[in-house]
């Protein structure tokens, strides 16, 4: 079966003016997602994962500006359409699950109202049809007594339940692509893996594309088809999950995976390994490799000029380092 490209991102950058200068939290990010594929974006806190996903949704904070060479969702060039058409896409063909389930639902309206809003807005179905789908999806995400839940308000549900509602909400219009931005970070450790597996299961069942942003490398190893590793606003390595987990090339990726290298053997809930040093400031221009300050292999070549995302060990594998992937293997 030929894979069908759902999302293509090229040269995506975000700039935010701050009192101390222009912040570049996302720099020249590019990746793609195929139908039925799960792409994981991993990286330390603050490396620009959320802003990347908000930039794709065109939901950036007011002051932030976005630029891109290419931003295509299944034949729709999202750089060429206006806000009105963009809002036709949001929640319809592309939906998002946020990091904060406790505050992402409106306290003033019932779950049922908030679930059915999307399909009604996008003219997909009438009220009763939308309710039926909401009940069906709530059951799918593992919520019991779903019909009664529709009448409840967010404050009557626990964080885990709310995030399940958010997942159901993301599926209401049958989107081609779901962006899940650290959907479990705010939840109890005991249910984090549960929710992530649920998400992966639904993604397989509905055959949507999924961008999964998470700290949980254990789950990434299990559910992701491909992985993009971000560091300080840039993608530093991208490739199949198998490639990334078995033979990580970039020194940063290797640092991350140091303690958890093999899929299948990785402990649940393992977090990103800690690498000594601090993340550079992204205010103003920065020549050379962003990771240089913390890299054991750094040489003079690394900081003199920009380092491109170069070919890796196989066609779909790319690494941003002055050394070739072969040179980087131990």
């Amino acid at each position: 079966m030929a894979s069908e490209r759902i999302l293509e991102v090229e040269g995506l950058s975000v700039a935010i003016p701050t009192p101390s200068g222009m912040l570049h939290p996302v720099q020249n990010v590019g990746f793609h997602v195929d139908r039925g594929e799960t792409v994981a974006i991993v990286g330390e806190s603050g490396c620009g994962k959320s802003l990347t996903s908000l930039a794709i949704m065109d939901l950036l904070p007011l002051r932030a500006t976005r630029s891109a060479d290419r931003l295509v969702l299944d034949n729709t060039d999202m750089l060429r359409i206006g806000e009105r058409q963009m809002s036709d896409i949001r929640g319809n063909r592309m939906s998002m699950i946020f990091q904060e389930p406790m505050t992402s639902l409106n306290p003033a309206y019932t779950i049922g109202d908030q679930l059915t809003e999307g399909p009604r807005r996008h003219g997909q179905s009438g009220m009763s049809e939308a309710r039926d789908r909401a009940v069906w999806l709530l059951e799918k995400v593992g919520i019991t007594a779903a019909a009664n839940r529709l009448r409840q308000y967010p404050h009557q549900l626990s964080g885990g339940l709310r995030q399940r509602v958010m997942i159901a909400m993301a599926l209401m219009c049958g989107p081609d692509l779901i962006i899940a931005d650290e959907p479990t970070t705010a939840l109890d450790v005991t249910i984090q893996a549960q929710i992530l597996h649920l998400l992966a299961e639904l993604q397989r069942e509905f055959h949507t594309g999924l961008i999964l942003i998470t700290h949980d490398l254990g789950v990434v190893a299990r559910v992701a088809d491909r992985v993009a590793v971000m560091y300080a606003g840039q993608i530093v390595e991208e490739g199949s999950a198998h490639r990334i987990f078995t033979t990580p090339s970039h020194p940063y990726t290797r640092g991350l995976l140091d303690c958890i290298p093999i899929p299948g053997k990785t402990a649940r809930g393992s977090h990103l390994g800690s690498i000594p040093g601090i993340v550079p400031s992204l205010i103003g221009e920065m020549p050379g490799c962003h990771f240089a300050e913390r890299c054991r292999h750094a040489t003079g070549r690394c900081t003199s000029r920009p380092v491109d995302l170069g070919d890796g060990l196989e066609p779909d594998h790319r690494v941003r380092c002055v050394f070739s992937p072969e040179e980087l293997q131990p």
């Binding site: 949704m57 939901l59 809002s87 036709d88 896409i89 949001r90 929640g91 319809n92 939906s95 998002m96 946020f98 992402s104 639902l105 409106n106 809003e117 999307g118 807005r121 996008h122 958010m166 909400m169």
Partner: peptide, 8 residues
């Protein structure tokens, strides 16, 4: 943000 993400 959720409401906007729904395309409302």
């Amino acid at each position: 943000r959720t409401a906007r993400a729904k395309g409302l």
